[in-house]
Structure formats: structure tokens, C-alpha cells
């Protein structure tokens, strides 16, 4: 890292916009949940909730945690943790689901 580069400074307004986006998504996730029964996703409810949560997580990581403006290496490092987590979940579920239902 010999070359000197300016560190990006996010504007005040962007901060506020990011916060508003997060609040809106929180409201959406509550409204879509079975607590209100506006939409019935059935078993897909878990998936929908996880998708919205991931969208929120991505916003926090990108702007608040500054990953959008950070170097490639830090992005790879942080995102790799999710990759290995998925790996862990995948193999555990592979075992447990086929144990409960061997025909799967």
C-alpha cells in the first residue's frame, strides 16, 4: 500500500438516507410477517424474512461499515465469513434433513 489514496468521506445526507432505507425495510419486514397477515407466504415466510434481513445487512455493510468504499481485500475477507457459514449450514442440514427423512 505505497500509493497514497484519499479516504472517502460519506456525506451527512447519505447517512440519513441509509438510515431511512433501513427503517423502511424494518417496517416492510414487520408488515409482511404473519403478525399482520397482510400476505400469507406460508412456509416461504422464513425465506422472505431472511431476504429482507440480508438486504438490510447489505446496506449496513456497504454504507455504515464503509465496505462499499473499502479495498477489495477487506471485502473478500468479510464476505468469506458468510461463505464458510453457508458451508457449515449446508452440510449440517444435509445430515439432519436426510436423517429425519431418509428418502429425501
Amino acid at each position: 500500500m505505497s500509493e497514497h489514496h484519499e479516504h472517502h468521506l460519506m456525506s451527512f445526507k447519505t447517512h440519513i438516507n441509509v438510515f431511512v432505507a433501513l427503517i423502511v425495510l424494518t417496517v416492510v419486514t414487520v408488515l409482511l410477517s404473519s403478525k399482520f397477515g397482510l400476505v400469507d407466504f406460508g412456509k416461504a415466510g422464513l425465506l422472505v424474512a431472511l431476504l429482507i434481513a440480508t438486504a438490510k445487512a447489505a446496506i449496513v455493510m456497504g454504507w455504515f461499515m464503509h465496505l462499499k468504499y473499502d479495498g477489495m481485500m477487506n471485502r473478500v475477507i468479510f464476505l468469506s465469513s458468510f461463505f464458510f457459514l453457508v458451508l457449515f449450514i449446508f452440510f449440517c442440514l444435509l445430515d439432519i434433513l436426510t436423517r429425519i427423512n431418509p428418502r429425501l
Binding site: F84, L87, F88, F91, L94, D95, I96, T98, R99, P102, L104
Partner: peptide, 20 residues
């Protein structure tokens, strides 16, 4: 990171997981 189940072949892990 994808091989840990080989410690568990006889501990009640499912057959599918064992093969994988």
C-alpha cells in the same frame, strides 16, 4: 472445511451425509 463428517461415520449421521 468440507470433510469434518468423516469423524462421525458411526455416530448416527445420515447415510447420505456419510457418503458425501
Amino acid at each position: 472445511f468440507f470433510v469434518w463428517g468423516h469423524h462421525m461415520f458411526v455416530s448416527g449421521q445420515s447415510e447420505v451425509a456419510g457418503i458425501v
